[in-house]
């Protein structure tokens, strides 16, 4: 790689964070991996971003897959309406 190309990579946090996101959910090319490595070697901010981003993914995963987190409650009025609709439908089906 040319020197000015390396300088560009070193500054480009936009691209680095993009590659971080892609790498966490999929894969990036060898060249992209090298670019990211060069960038992260000199950019402490993007290293923080990367760790925080990975932990956000973990949190989102838990939120979507963990049944044990607090169950929300539908209000009773709406439940009653739904029950009525279901009963009505069942009666219609009988006839």
């Amino acid at each position: 790689m040319e020197m000015d190309e390396i300088t560009k990579i070193a500054y480009n946090c936009r691209k680095a964070t993009f590659l971080i996101e892609k790498q966490q959910l999929s894969s990036i090319t060898m060249r992209e991996k090298l670019e990211l490595k060069i960038h992260l070697a000199g950019c402490v901010v993007c290293r923080i971003f990367m760790q925080q981003s990975a932990n956000i993914n973990k949190m989102v995963h838990n939120l979507l897959h963990d049944d044990t987190h607090t169950e929300m409650k539908l209000n009773d009025e709406f439940k009653k309406e739904m029950k009525d609709k279901i009963e009505q439908q069942l009666n219609n089906n009988k006839n």
Partner: peptide, 13 residues
Amino acid sequence: HQWVDKYADYLYT
């Protein structure tokens, strides 16, 4: 007949 009582909150979440 039991759906709402048994599953409504779970499905809503």
